[in-house]
Simulated scan of single mutants.
Amino acid sequence: MKLLPSLVAGFAGAVALTALHETVRRLRPQDAPRMDLLGMRGLRKLLGKADVRKPDGDTLFDLTMAGDVLSNGLYYALVGSGWHALARGLALGSLAGVGGVLLPGPMGLGTAPTNRTPQTQAMTVAWYTVGGLVAGTVARAMRKRRALVKQLRHFSVSRR
């Protein structure tokens, strides 16, 4: 696995996921997944266990968004840069979406942000799947670009 292309692809997927979540939650507040709320709840819990002063609302939101992009970027980097990146992106994205629906309750973060309605559940799975597909598509495009550059270098060297 090539580290830099994997990270670039992973963070592309994470940015796409976060942009989708934030856009839809503003357009459809009645049933959009609220991963921001889960993130802020989780961060509050962590800071409470570490006996650290909890930040105010805006700072908490900003820290949560940065943490979401970082953690999702590293997760989506597992898509890699080799063959089958798109299939791995689909699988990892779908798995993350199902986890986003099933895990918040047992983790003590509440269930409403991702289980409020059937539409909320479906959107949660769909948005994470989109993030995985974006990561896979970017990884695939970068692999094809590297292969093309390698061929062009070989061609130019052999013509000398």
Rank of each mutant, 00 (worst) to 15 (best):
G97N: 03
L95K: 03
L74E: 08
L103A: 15
S81N: 12
A87E: 11
S71D: 04
V101P: 01
G82W: 05
G105R: 09
D62M: 14
H84F: 09
D58I: 11
D62A: 15
D56V: 12
P104W: 04
N72K: 15
Y75F: 15
D68M: 11
T64Q: 10
A91Q: 04
G97I: 09
A85C: 14
V98G: 01
R88L: 09
G89E: 00
W83V: 10
Y75W: 15
P104T: 06
L70A: 15
G89Y: 00
G99Q: 06
Y75E: 01
L60D: 10
P106E: 07
V69H: 02
G93F: 01
V79F: 07
F61H: 12
G100I: 06
V69T: 07
S94M: 13
S71K: 14
P55G: 10
P55T: 13
G100M: 05
G100T: 03
S94C: 11
L63R: 12
L90G: 08
L60I: 13
G80F: 02
L86P: 01
L90S: 09
G73H: 03
S81W: 06
G80P: 04
T64M: 09
L70K: 09
S81L: 10
D58P: 08
V101R: 05
G99M: 13
G82R: 06
T59G: 11
F61R: 14
L60T: 10
G99A: 13
A96H: 02
L92V: 06
G93W: 00
N72C: 12
G57M: 13
A85H: 05
V98S: 04
V69N: 06
L90P: 02
G93N: 03
P106W: 08
P104Q: 03
S81H: 12
A91M: 13
P55C: 14
G93M: 05
P55R: 10
M65W: 13
V79Q: 04
A66Q: 11
G89L: 06
A85V: 05
Y75L: 14
V98I: 15
V98E: 02
V79S: 03
G97W: 00
G82V: 06
F61K: 15
T64K: 08
D58H: 13
L92S: 01
